[in-house]
């Protein structure tokens, strides 16, 4: 369970985080084990496997998402995509394959497009993440979002957030000079409905209008 200091969940994370911080303060692993051991024994006696696991499994993470700073505590095995979707309820980033093969999970990390399913959350410490939810300015949609609507650059809508995040990056990278170039640099984002034709039209238009973001 993630502990989001900006919006506390039902569980009180304070104690756990405190233990974790103490754990990290120790430079010696032996000291750390000595410190935590009684807690582990206690947990084992009370059959509290989970609490012990929590102590060992979670790592603090400081991350800015869509302009908002989060202080989190996450398991190292949690991907950025699952952190966004399952713990922060930012479900705009989609899971289409979970193996980095479809692009539906594309987000921006420090301004560059990244496959969030192939990125562990803990590796993003100190970084700035932008997801589809953070692309618009208030109620004003980003030019790429408007162009996708205008050119019907989607059907089912599932690959769309990833396509749009990639499309914005494609222009920022300077890879939208021609239709062929757009197609090449958008080929990491699969669309099974087959909206490619219209996606290219949307990017072409935004690029022509100097639509850097």
């Amino acid at each position: 369970m993630t502990n989001d200091n900006t919006q506390d969940k039902q569980e009180q994370p304070g104690e756990l985080l405190e233990t974790r911080r103490q754990f990290l303060k120790q430079s010696s692993a032996i000291t750390a084990i000595a410190l935590v051991a009684p807690a582990l024994v206690d947990a084992a006696e009370k059959k509290l496997d989970e609490k012990a696991a929590d102590i060992f499994e979670k790592v603090p993470l400081s991350i800015e998402i869509n302009g908002k700073q989060h202080q989190l505590s996450v398991e190292p095995r949690v991907t950025l995509l699952d952190l966004l979707r399952e713990q922060l309820h930012l479900t705009g980033s989609k899971k289409g394959c979970d193996y980095g093969q479809c692009g539906a999970c594309t987000v921006h990390v420090n301004g560059k497009r990244v496959l969030s399913c192939l990125s562990l959350a803990v590796m993003q410490d100190g970084k700035k993440v932008t997801t589809i939810e953070g692309l618009a300015t208030g109620s004003t949609l980003h030019p790429m979002q408007l162009a996708f609507i205008k050119h019907d650059g989607f059907q089912c809508g599932y690959c769309t957030p990833g396509q749009i995040m990639s499309a914005v990056a494609c222009i920022n990278e300077g890879h939208a000079g021609s239709d062929d170039e757009i197609r090449e640099h958008m080929s990491g984002n699969l669309c099974r409905c087959g909206a490619y034709h219209n996606i290219v039209a949307a990017i072409r238009e935004v690029n022509a209008k100097g639509g850097k973001s």
Binding site: T91, G92, K94, K95, A136, L141, I149, D152, G157
Partner: peptide, 21 residues
């Protein structure tokens, strides 16, 4: 006519089967 659900789809607010809170 643009798709009536277009805004939800381009802003990531359309919820699919595994996305209900």
């Amino acid at each position: 006519l643009d798709r009536v659900e277009g805004k939800e789809k381009v802003t990531g607010t359309a919820s699919y089967a595994a996305e209900y809170d």
